[in-house]
Simulated scan of single mutants.
Amino acid sequence: MKLEKPVSGGPCWAELGTSDLEGAKRFYTELFGWRPETDTRQEARGYTVAHLGDAAVAALAPLYEETQPVAWNVAFSVDDADAAAEAVEAAGGTVILGPLEVRDAGRFTVAVDPGGAAFQMWQPGAFAGAGLFNAPGTLGWVELLTRAPERVTDFYTTVFGWSVNASPEYTQWGIDGDDFGGMTTMGDVFPPEVPTHWLPYFAVEDVDGMASVAMDAAGSLLMEPTSVQNGPRIAVLKDPQGAVFGMYAAGPEG
């Protein structure tokens, strides 16, 4: 990810919805060295912010509804939550929650793209998003897995104004050419029951070593460590509660 801080239209936060908050705290603390801080106020319902040093890097939260899947969610920064929600609807997406005020922190929206992938939008107030990107244990890339690549490309470029760097092998998203993520078309290798989704990748120093740590902590490998042609070494994993995430070996530029 070339972005070093939250910018309008770019990814600003990753949030886990989990069926076992305490178990998730243990797993990700062991894996990434996170320091979780849980908001003890009743209205916060256990919302936990993970830190590396003084920087907030991600969140862990309980499931708020019975139908909510155990999954990582990706949030994109917007200047105006109401205008962004209108843009989503106009471009063929669906707003399923919000915009909602989160005290003085900001305004929060959950939406679904025309291909069925859920994502979040965040209008920053006192909280802009992650305080650190690309360092080991922090968000470094986001990837959309979709069955409707042309439709969602039109959607996201319309809603967020993303630049598109496409090759026959892979499509990358960017802000003014600074790439922060990509898109994979879900072919026959993906079972029909696997939904379209956004996948966060966290930077690590050693993909193979961290994959072993994850498995020792009751995680599982969905894609074994693999070296991408002209790219980093990556792996895709599932945590003990079933949430999927990626890891990549951070290079000199993150």
Rank of each mutant, 00 (worst) to 15 (best):
T109S: 15
A148Y: 13
Q172K: 15
P149H: 10
V112K: 02
G181V: 11
T138Y: 00
G242M: 13
A85T: 03
A91V: 02
D20E: 00
Q229N: 14
A83V: 12
G246F: 02
G246Q: 06
G116R: 03
A214M: 02
V78D: 13
V236P: 02
V142N: 13
W13F: 07
L221F: 04
E4A: 04
P191Q: 07
S163I: 04
T67V: 11
E30R: 14
A126C: 02
P252S: 15
L31P: 07
L3T: 14
R107E: 03
L144T: 12
V49W: 09
L63M: 14
T226C: 02
P62Q: 01
F160V: 14
E224V: 12
P99T: 10
S227L: 02
G9E: 07
R26Y: 03
E193P: 08
I96R: 03
L199Y: 06
T40N: 05
D239P: 08
D39R: 15
G177W: 13
Y170S: 12
V49I: 14
L145A: 13
E22L: 10
R41S: 12
P114Y: 09
F245W: 01
E169A: 15
E22P: 01
Y248T: 02
Q241V: 02
N165F: 11
P124N: 13
G174V: 13
G129W: 11
G209C: 01
N165Q: 14
H197Q: 04
P99W: 04
V204Q: 03
H197P: 00
G174H: 14
M210C: 05
V74I: 11
A91K: 07
G129K: 12
W141F: 14
W72H: 05
V78A: 09
I175A: 07
L60P: 11
Q42N: 07
W122C: 10
G254N: 06
G251F: 06
P195Q: 05
Q229Y: 14
M247H: 01
E37I: 12
T226W: 00
R147T: 07
S163Q: 10
F133Q: 06
A24Q: 08
A135G: 02
F190T: 08
A61V: 04
C12T: 14
A58T: 14
V213A: 00
A24D: 06
P195D: 06
